[in-house]
């Protein structure tokens, strides 16, 4: 990275501050996005975890649907974690060619931490935390699966879009955010 990139974090509801902390630690500038005007001038965008129903309603209320689709279509990197993965899928913003299954691992008592390899992330297994997490139930041919849990994709990439079922922003693990920021190059 030559100068600090400006990365937006959708801040309608959910774990947006934790993403901002990691991104700033890695040298990026961040901006909270609540209305379409907040997207202007961003080089990348994170859609954090939270409740997908709340985010869906918020995106509709704020008129963010079209601007977010245009942002993703413009080729700038977008990272969706957990509910953010759901927001990107066919049934929501419709930019990522996957069908995410909500709460796929079960209710909160089934939420968990696990370690596994993610393709493209060097340095050993990634420590991941899954909270009422989704998995990818279906995906199109343009989608590259980077990691699976129980035989279901939990990390995928399609060109400029990166989607994770888990929360790298909560574990002190910054390799996935580094991976995301490298997509700017």
């Amino acid at each position: 990275m030559s100068s600090a990139p400006l990365v937006g974090v959708l801040a309608l509801q959910g774990g947006f501050e934790a993403h901002e902390k990691v991104l700033r630690r890695l040298g990026a500038d961040t901006r909270q996005v609540r209305v379409p005007a907040d997207l202007e001038g961003l080089q990348a965008l994170v859609i954090p975890g939270g409740e997908s129903t709340v985010m869906t309603l918020g995106i509709e209320r704020e008129g963010l649907g079209e601007p977010l689709r245009a942002f993703a279509a413009g080729g700038r990197p977008v990272l969706g974690t957990c509910a953010g993965m759901i927001m990107l899928d066919r049934l929501h913003l419709g930019v990522l060619d996957v069908l995410a299954q909500r709460n796929a691992f079960g209710r909160q008592v089934r939420s968990f931490e696990a370690d596994f390899e993610v393709e493209g992330v060097a340095g050993g297994p990634v420590h991941a935390i899954f909270i009422r997490a989704p998995w990818i139930a279906e995906h199109g041919p343009g989608v590259q699966v980077l990691a699976e849990v129980d035989g279901h994709p939990v990390a995928v990439r399609q060109r400029n879009l990166l989607a994770l079922s888990f929360h790298p922003e909560l574990t002190g693990e910054d390799r996935l955010h580094r991976f995301f920021l490298r997509m700017l190059d």
Partner: peptide, 24 residues
């Protein structure tokens, strides 16, 4: 058995759900 080994219901996972409720 085809299942990824995991730790369920850790404090990180418990506090993590509250993180996801933030702003709500």
């Amino acid at each position: 058995n085809g299942h990824t080994p995991r730790d369920e219901a850790t404090f990180t996972v418990k506090a993590g759900l509250a993180e996801m409720l933030k702003g709500g």
